[in-house]
Each structure stands twice: as structure tokens, then as C-alpha cells.
Computed example of a mutant assay.
Amino acid sequence: MGKEIVKKVCELLKDVRNQKPLVHNITNYVTVNDCANILLAMGVSPIMADDIKESADITKISDALVINIGTLNERTIESMIASGKKANELNIPVVFDPVGSGASEFRNSTTKRILEEVRIDVLRGNMSEIKFISGLESTTKGVDASESDMKSGNEEGINVAKNLANKLNCIVAITGVTDIVSDGKRTVMLANGTKMLANVTGTGCMTSALIGGACGATNDYFIGAIAGIVSMGIAGEISFEKSGEIGLGSFRVGIIDAISNMNSDVIINMVKVQEI
């Protein structure tokens, strides 16, 4: 286990609660409430401003920006680009969640434009989305990864993450049964979580929000990405243990409860991380 990585994750999550970073989310209307609540549970101040008249101004006063194209529309694309450019200008970290990339030409062209016009610090997606962005053959199931892509081996995922991280000069995080995070040189596999997370709308979006929250309190976005993903995986395990048999509604609420109670002891006792 990467003891030094775990130590840094624990320290970062403490810093998040102490600093209470302001995180600007231009996200989708299906999951916006859950993203806001899970950030509050993390100790972060969330703000959701997607109108072009104010989006860049809000980013200017924020500690991190999260861009999510889940419910894509022409109006918010310009807000995403303007906010991303403002974040780049001020060295504010940008997390990009390319939801459904590969599913439609509109999503594909928007993803390409964002990656061309905005410097991304953390790119988080499922295997289908990341393979598509890498220029590899992939299939999607709407906004979810296809079964064939989900069956991609860890070795393939590691190579995809490393290569894309080097190509885009950013952190690449592939989330799935096993999560992979790479900056092109450092790579880890994370094995926390439960299959039930896939049955709740927005757990991927919430993970990206958590990454934004963590990156808003550090300059080490590699550790920030790991902290966000580990927090969601462990929260899913805790909620499943307490609420899994009750049903999906209780499980969803339990995730936010677990994030609100996340601490170093919980992480140290439960984290499953392997350095590559």
C-alpha cells in the first residue's frame, strides 16, 4: 500500500475542512443538487453559476472549477469555455468530466473544443469516455461505460491513462470497478467502492465534484484526484453496509452521510491503493 500517498490524502482532506475552498461547478441539472450537498459534506463551499454573464466572474473568486457536460446545451458551452479560460489565467485548477463523450457528435465536438481551448488539470471519466478521448475504439451506453469497455483489463487502463496524461499534460482518472489515476509518471490503482454505486444517478458527477473540492486546497492535483475518488469509494462501502438492504434512496443519502463523517482513521482503515 502507498503509505505516503495515504498520508498525503489524509492531510489534504483535513486541509479541505480547514480552508473551506469555494468550488465553482458548471454541471448538469440531473445531479447538481447532489454535487452541491456532497461538497458541503466534504467541507467545501459549492457554487453553481452557468450563465455566461457571470460564470467567469464566479470562477475568478473560486479555488477550483469543475466542468461537467452531462446535460449538454449550447448556452452553457460558452460559459464553460469562458470560465475555463479565466481559471487558466489565474492558475485555478480545472476538473473536466466529459460525460457521454463518444455518444453523440455534439458531445464529441464539445469535448474536443474544451480540451483545445482550456488547459485541464484533472480529466475524470469512465473507461468508454477516456478511450474515446484517447482516439481508441470505444462504445458507450448513453452516459455510462459499455460492458465491453468496463471489461478492459487493468493493464490496458493503466496504459490508456498514462498515455493520455502525457498527451494532455494533466492528471487522468479512469473510474470503474478499479479506479486508475495517472499523471504520466506516477500511477495508482484504487479498489474501494461497491457495485451499487453504479445504480445511483450522479455518483460519477459527485466524484468529479469531490476531486474539485480536494484540488481547491492543494497544488498537487494527483493527490487531489486520488482524495476525491477514495472518498467516494469508501463512502459507498460504508453506505452499502448501513443502508444497502434498505434500498437505493437510503444508500444515496448514506453516501453523503459517510462523506460528512470522513476522517483519517476511516481512510487509513479502509483505503485500498496500489502504486504501479
Rank of each mutant, 00 (worst) to 15 (best):
K131F: 08
S239F: 09
R107S: 13
G102W: 10
K162Q: 00
L40E: 05
I158S: 07
V9L: 10
E4A: 11
G228S: 07
M48R: 01
G202C: 08
N163V: 04
L72C: 07
L22I: 15
D179P: 12
S152K: 10
L123Y: 07
C170Y: 04
K151Q: 12
A217M: 07
I276Q: 13
D149Q: 07
S45T: 13
V266L: 14
A258K: 11
I26Q: 02
Q19E: 14
K7N: 14
L248Q: 02
A82E: 08
K151W: 00
N163Q: 11
I58G: 03
G43S: 12
T71N: 14
T31R: 01
N219H: 11
I67E: 06
E155C: 00
S182L: 01
G216F: 09
N261S: 15
G216T: 09
D57G: 12
G135T: 04
N192L: 10
S101R: 02
V143P: 04
M1G: 12
G247E: 11
L164H: 05
T178V: 14
N263R: 14
V32T: 05
L65R: 03
S264K: 15
E241N: 09
M196V: 09
M80S: 09
K8V: 03
E105C: 05
K60W: 03
A227V: 03
A235K: 01
L210R: 12
K3A: 02
T178E: 10
D97R: 02
E54T: 14
M1S: 15
T71D: 15
E147A: 15
T203M: 14
I255M: 15
G84W: 08
S231R: 04
K14G: 01
T27C: 05
L197K: 06
K20N: 15
R119I: 02
G125Y: 13
R124T: 10
V30F: 00
I267F: 14
K195T: 09
V99S: 04
L190Q: 01
L12V: 08
G125I: 11
V181A: 02
K242G: 01
V177W: 04
V32H: 06
I171N: 03
G2E: 11
K8T: 04
A214G: 00
N108R: 06
G233E: 07
I226N: 12
L115C: 00
K60P: 00
V95E: 06
L40N: 08
S109H: 07
E155S: 12
I234Q: 05
E137T: 14
K53N: 07
D34Y: 13
E74T: 15
N28Y: 09
K141G: 01
E241T: 10
I255N: 06
K131V: 00
S250C: 13
A41D: 04
G193V: 02
I267K: 07
G70W: 06
D15H: 00
P93N: 08
E245I: 08
V177G: 00
V66N: 12
D149R: 09
L210H: 03
I246E: 12
V143M: 04
S128T: 11
L210A: 06
M189P: 00
M150H: 01
K53P: 00
R17H: 15
A49N: 02
A235Y: 04
L197H: 02
C35V: 10
G213I: 11
S109P: 01
V122D: 00
T139A: 10
